[in-house]
Amino acid sequence: MVNGGLHEVDVPVGTTLADALRDVLGLTGTKIACGEGHCGACTVQLDGVPVLSCITLVHTVGEREVTTIEGLREHPLVQAFVEADATQCGFCTPGQIVSAAALLAATPRPGHDEIVHAMSGNLCRCGTYPKIERAIEAVAAENRGG
């Protein structure tokens, strides 16, 4: 299941989830940067939990629900990232939003330390971290009722 739709992919064993999403399903919002599980650019949710799609073999996903950035188009974080100017080059942004969406789903009103802890697996080479925190805090404030 990817973003609510059922897909069967026919690829060799050893193919990663990231490659299958991008090259077979055309969901190129998921980015591959380091390709070895360090940077978080490829983050997707598996049953709501952020994981690294560049080191997840697609044959081990089974029937779990994959959520990519394309499945979060309507999430308030997208607008919050724009309003907080939380992107520079933007390459890490899909992974950032996927991680942040999982955090807010589990903890609608996270404190500063919870945000930093939950987002620590998503690197941003442009250094937009303070603005990413601001964007997440803005959505958390809405969850708090403004």
Binding site: G37, H38, G40, T43, V49, P50, V51, L52, I55, T56, S99, H117, A118, M119, S120, G121, N122
Partner: peptide
């Protein structure tokens, strides 16, 4: 030990 994603995997 590792990032949140790695610890969840």
């Amino acid at each position: 030990a590792a990032s949140p994603q790695l610890r969840s995997m």
